[in-house]
Simulated assay, not measured.
Amino acid sequence: MKFNSLVIHGGIDGDEKTGAVTVPIYQTSTYRQKKVGQHSGYEYSRTGNPTREALEKLISDLEGGFRGFAFSSGMAAISSVLMLFKSGDHIILSDDVYGGTFRVVDKVFKNLGLEYDFINTNDINDISKYIKKNTKAIYIETPTNPLMKLTDIKEVSKIAKENNLLLIVDNTFMTPYLQKPIKLGADIVIHSATKYLGGHSDLVAGLVIVNNEELGNKMHFIQNSVGAILGPFDSWLLIKGIKTLHVRMDRHCENAEKIVNWLKEQEWVKKIYYPGIEANENKIMQMKKFGGMISFEVVNEEYLNKLLSNLKIITLAESLGGVESLISVPAKMTHASIPAEIRDKLGITDTLVRLSVGIEDVEDIISDLTLNLK
């Protein structure tokens, strides 16, 4: 089945018992058993729920994985993946990651004995220098958040396999419509499904997809043991959002490309960070299109304040990937938890802006970004 059909008919398509076209919301906590230990496949909704299972099978189909798992947030998904490792294990992570990822590694899992290095993973030659005897995984974002740096998944996969390491890829920005990490060699894929997969800023969710049965058994044990599961209503909402993923992503990409070309002509824009620019410069062509995320640096705080006070269509808010355009200042919002000295080193300045391009009329978005410099 082609992707555009798979988003609609993948996973569990409708309900066989009633003929319902959409998967029902099984809003229940427990299930009747005929005898002790004899049930219909479900016993308690933390362990398994039919609506959540439909979502989990759908995202596994879309990513080309072995098994999928739905969690209560993107951070719950990331934290559950990190629970695969034990005290004394070492992992390598992209240095320019979402602030919440940095925080949970540096402030939570560090206290549990996890060792780590945040490095520039888009420099493939640099990765091997950080591999130790206790290294267990490489964790990458591509594109990164917020500087849109790309890492060659296929090349990192070669390094991971040579050293018997897991390769974990956060695919939130690209979605399985634009990029397929498992096909490129990843073992685990993570999504903040709050973003493009949900697509309507009406839910918080996380997804994990694994490429083999062993990892599937381990992730299910963690999911069931910790219990950070996605509820049935949000699972249903997420299935609903995914059905239009391909249509929305095409418009996100189209609008973003036009806005990037417009930003190149603006004198108040110091630098633009966009996957299309990075891909062409580094000849990394692992995505179908370049997504709807743009970051750009404004020449000074005066122009930044003018920009933020000019907004009518674009919303100043955290998060991304909704049908509406959202703008943020990462250093003061999504990445404020990263120490200032690390932000400065990475290039996450106080005048860096991150724009999640929505699916509105592109001329209205550009009008919001147009500054009167007099």
Score class of each variant (00 low, 15 high):
K149D: 07
S87Y: 04
G41S: 06
S79F: 00
T244N: 14
I338K: 00
K17A: 12
K270W: 02
N305Q: 11
D152W: 00
K158F: 04
Y303H: 11
M333I: 07
G227C: 13
K243D: 02
I239V: 13
N120S: 15
E16T: 06
A228T: 09
K107E: 12
T144I: 01
V226P: 00
I8A: 03
N300P: 02
H200N: 14
Y130P: 00
T18P: 13
S192H: 14
L311H: 07
S5V: 12
S192F: 12
V260R: 08
L150H: 03
I91T: 05
T315H: 05
P50R: 09
M219V: 09
S225V: 07
R52K: 07
F66H: 13
Y26F: 12
I259C: 02
I314A: 05
G88S: 10
I8C: 08
D187H: 11
I239E: 00
N305E: 12
I284C: 06
D361Q: 11
P339D: 06
V226A: 09
A54C: 05
K154W: 01
I188F: 00
P339K: 04
E297F: 11
G65D: 07
I327P: 02
S201E: 11
G100D: 06
F296D: 09
G37Y: 03
T244P: 02
S295R: 11
S60I: 10
F66L: 08
G321T: 06
K17S: 10
E162A: 15
L316R: 12
N171A: 13
G100V: 02
F221S: 09
D361E: 14
E115K: 15
F290W: 14
I153M: 06
L215H: 00
D96I: 03
H90Q: 14
K243N: 06
K133P: 05
I284R: 00
Y42R: 12
K35L: 09
P146Y: 06
S337P: 01
L55N: 00
L112T: 08
F296S: 02
D350I: 04
P339I: 03
L352K: 09
P339W: 02
L82Q: 00
L245G: 04
G358T: 09
V97Q: 09
I188V: 14
V362K: 10
F85C: 15
E115V: 04
G322Q: 03
G241D: 02
M293W: 07
E318L: 11
P143S: 12
I159K: 02
T121P: 00
N310S: 13
Y273N: 05
L62A: 06
S72W: 03
D123T: 03
H39G: 11
G347T: 05
S73N: 04
G19E: 06
E56F: 06
T172I: 02
N310A: 09
V21K: 13
L326K: 14
G216W: 00
F221C: 05
